[in-house]
Nucleic acid binder design. Structure first.
Lengths: 145, 145
DNA sequence: AGTCTTCCTACCAAGTAAGTAGGAATACTG
DNA sequence: CAGTATTCCTACTTACTTGGTAGGAAGACT
């Protein structure tokens, strides 16, 4: 698995936004992009494109103007690492650019498709069972069941 | 996880070589690169570089000359998908080009390292428990334990 | 009107992936 | 020994992706 700078930045930004949210539901404190860029050392203009993706994926709420900024649309306990990765990166495992299920093998290689599907499942198990709240609480990653 | 053409070709070539090996131990039938390229539809000169990597990693035995070719150095039951992937691709999961354990996070992002390590472990569990022989027998991938 | 912020598009530079070309070294055959 | 078939090795090309930048338009508040 290759974690791109985009994915990495997206997760760090989401964690920083989540850290500013109040415990309950509700929208929480608005955090400015410039603020996120500074505290997590991410180039601002690059980050803005990423935040846009996260908003379009429905993970962030945003507001413009003088007191604008970003906030989570759901509590941090309901946003998983997988949600964030898929928002910015598309499919979790690809074979030469194609999604795992249609790699198209013939002959002795036919069994490979199942390997890639198993890999994708294993990755999904980890990233979909770890929420932003888990990471903030430093409850680390739950062991694979 | 991104499976590159290199990794994909390497696995398919190894499977084709394994399919030509006799059941027991021993070196088995020598298979020519041109043969592999044809049956698995891989560009020959590209494949040659890959076969070289596999030989240097100790997975293939090779012989030059008129009756040359390639054979497995170990029985197919003792070569895993992970062996092949690591031979041609290096580390299984990288964060922005670096191995997962030294991604270097500060502040609220500190927990991310453990996520990447868990992902790497999950991938390894799948690819290291699937042998070439499993794939040839079409016994598919053993479920994660 | 002015200012602050998000939004959006286009662009650039460097690296990597995928594939090609051409020849050197080695092994066997007659 | 000459010839042929194969692996070995290096250098190169081409195209795409990644990471990052620039510059403004659109909206929100005072």
């Amino acid at each position: 698995m290759y974690v791109s700078a985009r994915s990495d930045y997206a997760l760090r930004a989401m964690l920083a936004v989540a850290a500013a949210a109040p415990g309950g539901d509700g929208v929480g404190e608005l955090v400015k992009a410039g603020n996120l860029a500074e505290v997590q050392e991410i180039p601002l203009s690059f980050l803005q494109g990423i935040l846009l993706d996260l908003r379009r994926a429905g993970l962030l709420y945003s507001h413009r103007g003088a007191d604008g900024g970003y906030a989570l649309t759901r509590p941090a306990t309901e946003i998983t690492v997988g949600d964030v990765l898929r928002a910015v990166g598309g499919s979790l495992t690809t074979v030469r650019g194609l999604p795992a299920e249609r790699a198209g093998y013939h002959g002795v290689a036919a069994g490979l498709t199942d390997v890639w599907l198993a890999v994708r499942g294993a990755i999904a198990t980890v990233v979909d069972s770890t929420t932003l709240a888990d990471l903030l609480a430093h409850n680390q990653t739950p062991a694979a069941p």
